[in-house]
């Protein structure tokens, strides 16, 4: 659905996007993750047909974004980061206007259906200028969904929403993503973790990692971590746990707390629990300590900086 090869974009002398390549299939929800100014918006603007790249090529739904821009724009729903809307129009009139520009048959019906989808029916007759940030976001989303596009490009779709709305919008995106291709950008890592099938980590215009959120975690950590807490001293337990197959390392933390590392893909917790009971310790707590995308992100960007220094 989306194919990007060697995409590069310069603003004057500044290179915003540097030779990036990736693909997304139908049914994929791909997340662009990166700090502000990493090149997320620029890439999305190129893919939405807003501006051409300096170099490289991209096809969306089988059409080239430069030479077949109109065909691309017909098949893409795009929500820009700033959520530009005509404040002097009512929600309904605005969506009807966009539906007319897309030559949708039964425009009125389609607008009403879409309003229902984003839960904005009651505000249909209200002026956009009077809406809250969260409602504007939903109108913007409705605009992107009007023509039921094959590809949905959402630039920071949950920014500015209150927590309840964030949950709703994420659910909406997941539902849409079942049949369509969704490319969304975010700098909230937990969001990418929750919604996306695949994450592209982008920094300074370069993709520095690409995988599922789970694999990114696994590959970067090399081993998974867990912690356990027992009643009383735990030092005698270290030897016991080390004997469990798959456990790599055990380190005492505070009193009664041990941290253990084990190979990714194995789960040693059940076995450890059995051994602890056998050794007559009272197990109070045990859990795995996952590495969050925050950690991964920081690690990756730090690694990249180190590589540059070398």
């Amino acid at each position: 659905m989306i194919q990007v090869r060697g995409l590069t974009k310069d603003y004057g002398t500044r290179r915003a996007v540097d030779n990036i390549s990736f693909e997304a299939e139908q049914g994929d929800i791909v997340g662009f993750l990166g700090p502000n100014g990493a090149g997320k918006t620029t890439t999305m603007r190129i893919l939405s047909g807003y501006m051409p790249p300096t170099d490289g090529e991209a096809t969306v739904a089988g059409y080239d974004v430069v030479s077949e821009s109109l065909e691309v724009r017909r098949r893409v729903g795009y929500l820009p980061e700033t959520v530009p809307l005509y404040n002097d129009m009512t929600v309904f009139d605005y969506l009807k206007f966009m539906a007319d520009l897309r030559h949708l048959p039964n425009g009125n019906e389609r607008v009403n259906e879409t309003l229902q989808l984003v839960d904005m029916e009651e505000r249909a007759k209200g002026y956009i200028g009077n809406l809250s940030k969260g409602m504007r976001q939903r109108v913007g989303l409705a605009q992107a969904l009007l023509h039921r596009p094959e590809v949905l490009i959402l630039d920071e779709p949950t920014i500015g929403l209150d927590p309840g709305q964030v949950v709703e919008v994420r659910k909406l995106i997941r539902d849409i993503g079942k049949e369509r291709t969704v490319l969304l950008s975010t700098h909230i890592l937990s969001e990418a973790q929750q919604i996306c099938d695949r994450v592209l980590i982008i920094n300074k215009g370069v993709i520095i990692a690409e995988d599922t959120p789970e694999n990114l975690q696994a590959s970067l950590i090399g081993s998974e971590r867990g912690m356990l807490r027992v009643k009383g001293e735990a030092d005698n337990l270290i030897k016991v746990i080390k004997k469990v197959k798959g456990v790599k390392n055990v380190t005492p933390k505070e009193e009664g707390v041990l941290e253990f590392q084990f190979a990714p893909g194995t789960d040693v917790r059940a076995e450890i629990a059995r051994e602890i009971i056998k050794a007559k310790f009272d197990l109070l707590e045990m859990r795995s300590v996952g590495m969050s995308l925050e950690d991964i992100f920081l690690q990756l960007t730090r690694e990249e900086q180190n590589n540059k220094k070398l």
Partner: peptide, 13 residues
């Protein structure tokens, strides 16, 4: 207002 981005990404020449 940024709405030009909207127009330029709509299927309009």
């Amino acid at each position: 207002m940024g709405t030009l981005e909207l127009m330029l990404t709509a299927p309009v020449r």
